[in-house]
Amino acid sequence: MTDDQSGVVSQLLGHWSKGDEKALAELLPLVYDELRRVARSHLQRERPDHTLQSTALVHEAYLRLLGSQPPELRNRPHFIAVASRLIRQILVDYARERRAAKRDGGCRVPVEYLDALPVSSDEDLLALDDALNDLYRTDARQAKIVDMKFFGGLTSPEVSEVLGLSRATVDREWATARAWLHRQISRAQP
């Protein structure tokens, strides 16, 4: 990332944190690119001992995007909020690819990156993704919280800062969302 680009990202983050939704739209493709790049470089390594966490991916993308400028830590939770949704998308894409490859009699031994997520298989991740997408339709705020906490690794205080909610609300929403998702997924299993 050039210095110019990290400046832009930092600025956009700043605007968005002040409530400018348009900045988010501009930010997303930049973040997405970087996340993809970071994820790809890790997910395609053929090292069988490789493990990966979505939070670490996001962390790395954050450092890369904000580069040599000392990042304002204030912006970090906002960044992660954006990134967490995207990282889920990316991981799900990979999971689908691998599932398809396995069915074709696939070529490679899959990288066990999901070990670090307490979701133990591609199937689980995809099920979670489906359920989460359903949740977005029911209660978008709860779904966002799940994305941020689970995929992004934000703490409750950080989530409450990003969303402008009280700590208690965040915790309640999180608990409810979790129960809802659990139920959704158990029902979906044959």
Partner: peptide, 16 residues
């Protein structure tokens, strides 16, 4: 949901 909550508490979606 309450039942699901009880089940989910101990092991579901523990973030890394």
């Amino acid at each position: 949901l309450l039942i699901a909550d009880a089940e989910a508490r101990s092991s579901f979606l523990k973030p890394a």
